[in-house]
Write a protein that binds this DNA or RNA. Structure first.
Lengths: 192, 192
DNA sequence: CAGAATACGGACTGATAGTCCGCTTGTCAA
DNA sequence: TTGACAAGCGGACTATCAGTCCGTATTCTG
């Protein structure tokens, strides 16, 4: 692996920042075109696509930054997110943490889950698969194996970005109200 | 309201049939363009758009046919779907019936829920709003009002077309297995 | 059968993701 | 410092759609 050239690194950063800003500003992610991003970053379209391949990947790179702390907390942090937590509390904490991240980064998360046809693949994305697998294993003690998988999907369905966005913008629910409902729901789902 | 001219009626039917077929055949709804549909129906693009306005509306018209029986059952049919059913059983029956329709018409339902950016609006669509309102009212007896709304959204999140599609195609779950998990889940959610 | 109202269809527009390639810039060895 | 070459750049270009427009064709009515 070669070093990244200075101008390339500068442009990469500029593109990520520009994209983040534009998604934050715009009402809907689909209003932000790749041309817009390239222009705002002060680079050509070719540069943008050479660096990031396609729109989906660009968006993933942008949000990877925001997700990194959460991922790290879950993988190797202290309780209640880290591995040294009893399954029940850990599941609850993870769902809540996901909700918080998505509520705080609604614009980006919408862009990510925005189904652009077959390119969508929320359920095939590495992040979804990883967190689903973890949740599945954590609840497998309480439920059967196939049932655990279903439960994990069900839990995650409650924190989908478009649902959260609708609750906030369409129904005016407060973040804390959403989290409270979610907490009760998860608790009730996990406690027999 | 004027009578529909004979050629217009013929073309409307041809377009609906062609669209239905194409969505059924194709892997992903987004692979089916409006030109494809017009061509398959043997009409010009102008005709297609004059009759249906836009892509979203066309898809809604196509699936309205499939949804009509369910809607009618819920609005005025006999138990367990109709109004003369105790809330708890009715909610359960409705969720199961929605799952069945979506599992049986996966191609169409995917097309409908396919978020084409701001045009998406699953949560703003008349059908979603109607069924959410009904479920909310049915569970309002057991939960608070704001909580009932959240619960209704949560229930519906478990029967989203893309989730069902993933369970079937991505994880190889059988329809009956999905419905069984769903039934247990709904029962557990509603029974304190 | 004629004339008006309605509908047709496909060329046209505008937008967007993604490609291509001649030109520029950074890097590094001498 | 320099010069040559790899790496990177940018924007014109292509392909693909949804949706519009309007001259022409069809259907209905009396």
């Amino acid at each position: 692996m070669q070093e990244e050239r200075a101008d390339a690194a500068r442009n990469r950063k500029a593109i990520l920042e520009a994209a983040d800003n534009l998604f934050a500003i715009s009402d809907s992610p689909s209003e932000v075109s790749m041309d817009d991003i390239a222009h705002a970053a002060g680079v050509g379209k070719g540069t943008l696509f050479r660096r990031f391949g396609d729109r989906r990947n660009l968006i993933q790179q942008v949000y990877a930054v925001r997700l990194a702390p959460l991922r790290e907390q879950i993988e190797s942090g202290p309780p209640p997110l880290g591995p040294d937590t009893p399954p029940r509390e850990r599941v609850s904490a993870i769902i809540d943490a996901i909700a918080v991240v998505k509520l705080d980064n609604a614009h980006l998360m919408l862009a990510l889950e925005e189904g652009t046809g077959p390119t969508n693949g929320l359920y095939e994305s590495a992040d979804y698969v990883a967190v689903h697998g973890l949740l599945r294993d954590l609840v497998a003690g309480k439920f059967g194996k196939s049932r655990a998988s279903w439960i994990a999907h069900s839990l995650l369905a409650n924190v989908r970005a478009d649902l959260l966005g609708h609750l906030v913008k369409g129904e005016g629910m407060s973040h804390s109200n959403i989290r409270s409902n979610l907490r009760d729901f998860v608790a009730h789902t996990l406690d027999y």
